[in-house]
Amino acid sequence: MKTEDLNKIKKMEVDEITEEIKRMHDELMEDKKFFPESLLEKLDSEKALQEIFEKILKDFKHHIYKEEKILFPYLINLAKAARNEIPFEKPYFETVVNPINMMQSDHESINDATERLKILIDDELSQKKINSAIAEKINDIIEYIRKVIYLENVILFPKAALLEKKFLV
């Protein structure tokens, strides 16, 4: 990610960052730019690679679902409450730190799996078992996932926890 893009995101409000990450989720999982599902079919002859990649996609989809159904609506409302657009409502999960910890645990698992996948891809490429174009597309997906995780862990989550502290004192 370019430094200027990163600086722009750092200056955004929590709800704006959240919306940007939702857009990135959509781009990754639904856009024709990546088309991860079609890559799975192309990996049919390499079962180990296919299984790890399929598990990463499944885990990431589940992770996105949890974020977009539980955490993100709260973050958007938290930002609105900070601007006095709506009243603050304490979440049923007590504090944003609880779902953040769960999301960060997911991130660790996903990062571990993407690291294993990268190693396997490099091995398969060196043995000429997979097409370099397919390997490049998978690596692009891995990098995109890592970028989203970075934005959440390093920018969004700390900013949201700090914002919430203003209400929970």
Rank of each mutant, 00 (worst) to 15 (best):
H62V: 09
E67F: 03
F167V: 07
N7I: 08
S38Q: 10
E30W: 08
I141W: 01
I142Q: 01
I121V: 10
I142W: 03
N84R: 12
K47S: 10
T18W: 11
F35T: 04
N77A: 07
H62Y: 12
K11C: 06
N131C: 10
R23H: 14
F35L: 04
A48H: 09
K80D: 02
K32I: 11
D140N: 13
K11L: 15
M12P: 05
K33G: 02
Y74I: 08
F157T: 06
E37W: 06
I70Y: 05
N111S: 14
A79V: 06
S109N: 14
D59C: 02
E115W: 02
E4A: 13
E37Y: 09
K22F: 12
K47A: 10
E4H: 10
M102Y: 12
I86R: 06
E108Y: 11
H107G: 04
D44P: 00
K8E: 13
K129N: 14
I145A: 03
I121T: 03
I138K: 02
K22S: 14
K90T: 11
K8I: 06
K66G: 09
N153M: 09
M102W: 01
K66I: 11
E20A: 12
E54H: 13
E27W: 07
K22Q: 15
L125S: 07
Q50I: 00
L168S: 10
N7T: 08
N111F: 03
A82P: 02
N7S: 12
K166Q: 15
H25W: 03
D123S: 07
E4T: 13
